[in-house]
Amino acid sequence: MAYAYLFKYIIIGDTGVGKSCLLLQFTDKRFQPVHDLTIGVEFGARMITIDGKQIKLQIWDTAGQESFRSITRSYYRGAAGALLVYDITRRDTFNHLTTWLEDARQHSNSNMVIMLIGNKSDLESRREVKKEEGEAFAREHGLIFMETSAKTASNVEEAFINTAKEIYEKIQEGVFDINNEANGIKIGPQHAATNSTLSGSQGGQQAGGGCC
């Protein structure tokens, strides 16, 4: 299917916080209570529309455990967006965020948009991390924040799409060099076709809402 842009995402965070379930909910719109353990990396993709443009999200789901870190790290490179996930019912997964963030910033490009996600919001009675704490952490580190539930699908679409919007805005502002694939953005065939006379970076601004 033709797309205007392709954004590469990574999903990171402690083991068992629901990374693979978030991805499955987003790509397949279903919840699998017992999801296979991710070994190394897995992969998913879905098309979304922003500003009338078809954008393909290519999402890399990584294993959470330390022993795989050296394998998964290599996939940080060339990601335009990252979903950093913790589990609101497990304080330790929130406490580890700093390590994850350092790791991500160190191994990815500096413009990468990071969305902080407090997952399992359906388990309100077992909550260990307050929403305000997540918000504060995000504010302090310049991240976007959202609480989601991969089980009820609450905010899952929004999490992936808002991240894409932020990346899209950065493209409009010219922050991302979209001709360099190492930034995790690729101009798609649709874009090239509809804006054949324009260069890539200008095309994004000109064609706003113009195509289906």
Binding site: T15, G16, V34, H35, D36, L37, Q65, D92
Partner: peptide, 13 residues
Amino acid sequence: IRIIDKDVPRTDR
């Protein structure tokens, strides 16, 4: 143990 407890429930179910 924390990780084992996350992994065991999703082993070969």
